[in-house]
Nucleic acid binder design. Structure first.
Length: 657
DNA sequence: CCCCATTTAAACATAA
DNA sequence: ATTATGTTTAAATGGG
């Protein structure tokens, strides 16, 4: 040990020098970047896109959580999924990314009852409430539209096991809806007739009474019997729906929206654009509006699938709303706080780094086009942040197997592969969501250090980085600190250097790359030969290259790059969950990548070097999270909740800090 | 089945 | 004596 430390220490000194040079450039970079960021995010508000991105992820995760809550039902061991992914996976994946859901999958979801009727109802109800809030429509009209069964709606509302009648009632009331509206809403969503309900809700729980009992809150209660009534409707034709849609030229649900949109029966429809059906996951080409309507009524009629998709969408919307309000509050608080006071003696420095790094990841979208080439990311040039959204879900999906248990296991990516590419962009996500980051401690520590101005941090500073960067580490106490210390000591790549202040930790990039390369087997070439402790003079380049190699891809993950699909698209090109490349170390990418490049050598473009490198990152473990996020809680329990940490809103904080 | 990487826990050692 | 840092050892888990 002694010897090693000695040699390493030496190397460090050289490192630090490098670090210095790097520093300057990186700082400059940061500066310019900041400027940019301010331009983009200027508004006190978080960029919508980002916010949406984040929120959608969360929403989806919440939805997934709900879905998965049922212990024994649907999901099976990951193994079976590996190869037969068609059946099981879809459940989670499907829910996560509605756009990708195929009819068959949906069917399976429903048939397998992965979702209990209660769950579906819960989702629906929450969504209804949200919808209503958003929609706000004159009651009278709604009533006119449907004179029919109100009981169903009521029934459904009351039945939920996840949302207490009170909560729901509250929501409803808050939204200012009348029973009639609720009914209508439900009708719209489910298909208007009892059909949907049959499948989802009613059948299962005879216990409808459960809800009923509490239902007192709403005067609606009680006509359970009615549930049966509607059943009579011919499912396929789905009278109500088709009726409305034809009449108005749009689906009932959208009817509400129409008002705001100013759409006239003309030929516009929220679900129709650019000659394509915009129903999640559809994209069907429709020559003209008429054809579209036809398609809409035939392909997206009231059936289980449509209903389920609608629910998912509603859930998404609801979560977004909730998150938005929270973020707003947070933002205000932050603003207020920051305005108040100047700076701190010591603490300030770190935050800055962090901030910059984060910001970087956030702002540097276009950064490295070079990377793109490799990845088959969709050719579509337009990169709308929105595009990222759809994928996000997938990430989460993979990430969170409900295995809450105790520890995290890294689970095979197999079907979560799409995730990888999303991680980088999700930097914000990890910052706010209590989800365990899919990176190894070593990776994170390195990142923390690299991220610092001088490429060195004290233990405490590393701790700080962890807590600041990942919500997960804010919450989960000390074990991870022990892990950090353990990793620092264990890995040769981390070198302790005595400093004036005390001791700081630095990264021996060569060592670090060595480890990586070993794993990767494939391309040990570069790093392999380098003597770790030798002069960096020569080695430096190598290490740089290696570093670049590693970091290169990550960029792909940047939000901007994500892929196509812009606006319309959920359905758009999103299919491409796969599209992404296997990124790896996204963290690096987003965070340090700049640094590296900055001072690194303009000479090479990372991308060019290592296409294959990415091979696979090592740490793709994302599965468990303890509890993904409070959102889940929200979803399950009640709208109110406290949020504390759920999300802290990172965008702003970074900018502001 | 073996090997390796990672994560956790936990026992110690040291210095402040 | 306590706490923060570091080191080590060991067990559990999982992927190759």
């Amino acid at each position: 040990m002694m010897q090693e430390s000695a040699t390493e220490t030496i190397s460090n000194s050289s490192m630090s020098q490098n670090g210095m040079s790097t520093l300057s450039s990186s700082q400059l970079e940061a500066g310019s970047r900041d400027g940019r960021s301010s331009a983009g995010d200027t508004s006190s508000e978080v960029s919508t896109v980002e916010l949406l991105h984040l929120q959608q992820q969360q929403a989806l995760q919440a939805a997934r959580q709900l879905l998965l809550q049922q212990p024994g039902s649907g999901l099976k061991s990951p193994k079976s999924q590996d190869k037969q992914r068609p059946l099981q996976v879809p459940v989670s994946v499907a829910m996560m990314s509605p756009q990708v859901i195929t009819p068959q999958q949906m069917q399976q979801i429903l048939q397998q009852q992965v979702l209990s009727p209660q769950q579906l109802q819960a989702l629906l109800q929450q969504q209804q409430a949200v919808m209503l809030q958003q929609v706000r429509k004159p009651p009278a009209r709604v009533v006119d539209l449907l004179p029919t069964s109100s009981a169903q709606t009521q029934y459904m509302c009351l039945q939920s096991t996840f949302v207490s009648p009170l909560s729901f009632t509250r929501l409803c009331l808050a939204a200012g809806l009348s029973p009639a509206e609720l009914q209508q809403l439900w009708k719209d969503v489910t298909g208007g007739n009892g059909h949907g309900m049959e499948d989802n809700g009613i059948k299962h729980n005879s216990s409808g009474s459960t809800g009923g009992g509490n239902g007192g809150g709403l005067d609606l209660s009680t006509n359970n019997s009615s549930s049966t009534t509607s059943s009579s409707n011919p499912a396929k034709a789905s009278p109500p729906l088709s009726h409305h849609s034809i009449a108005n030229g749009q689906s009932p649900i959208l009817n509400h929206r129409r008002d705001s949109l100013h759409e006239e029966s003309g030929g516009t429809h929220p679900l129709y654009g650019h000659g394509v059906c915009k129903w999640p996951g559809c994209e069907k080409l429709c020559e003209d509006f008429g054809q579209f309507l036809k398609h809409l009524n035939s392909e997206h009629a009231l059936d289980d699938r449509s209903t389920a998709q609608c629910r998912v969408q509603m859930q998404v919307v609801q979560q977004l709303e909730i998150q938005l309000s929270k973020e707003r509050e947070r933002l205000q608080a932050m603003m207020a706080h920051l305005h108040m006071r100047p700076s701190e003696p010591k603490s300030s420095p770190k935050p800055l780094n962090l901030v910059s790094s984060v910001t970087m990841s956030k702002n540097l979208p276009p950064a490295s086009p070079p990377n793109l080439p490799q990845t088959p990311t969709t050719p579509t040039a337009p990169i709308t942040p929105m595009a990222a959204m759809p994928q996000v879900p997938s990430v989460l999906g993979g990430a969170n197997v409900p295995s809450m248990g105790a520890m995290r296991r890294r689970h095979s990516d197999k079907y979560s592969m799409p995730l990888s590419s999303e991680i980088a962009p999700n930097y914000e996500f990890y910052k706010n969501a209590d989800v365990r980051p899919p990176f190894t401690y070593a990776t994170l520590i390195r990142q923390a250090i690299i991220d610092s101005a001088e490429h060195q941090l004290t233990l405490n500073e590393i701790y700080s980085w962890f807590t600041r960067t990942f919500a997960y580490f804010r919450r989960n106490a000390a074990t991870w600190k022990n892990a950090v210390r353990h990793n620092l000591s264990l890995h040769k790549c981390f070198v302790r250097v005595e400093n004036v202040k005390g001791a700081v930790w630095t990264v021996d990039e060569v060592e670090y790359q060595k480890r990586r390369s070993q794993k990767i087997t494939g391309s040990p070439s570069l790093v392999k030969n380098l003597p770790s402790s030798l002069g960096y003079g020569t080695a430096l380049n190598a290490s740089l290259q290696a570093a670049l190699a590693e970091t290169s891809l990550p960029l792909l993950g940047t939000p901007g790059l994500m892929n196509s699909g812009s606006t319309g698209p959920m359905g758009g090109s999103c299919h491409g969950l796969l599209g992404g490349d296997s990124a790896h170390e996204e963290l690096n990418g987003s965070l340090d990548h700049l640094d590296t490049n900055g001072h690194g050598s303009p000479g090479y473009s990372p991308s060019a070097h290592m296409p294959p490198i990415h091979v696979k990152e090592e740490p793709l473990n994302m599965d468990d999270d303890d509890c993904p996020m409070s959102l889940v809680t929200t979803a399950n329990h009640s709208p109110e909740l406290d949020d504390d940490r759920e999300l802290e809103e990172g965008n702003l904080s970074e900018d502001l800090e």
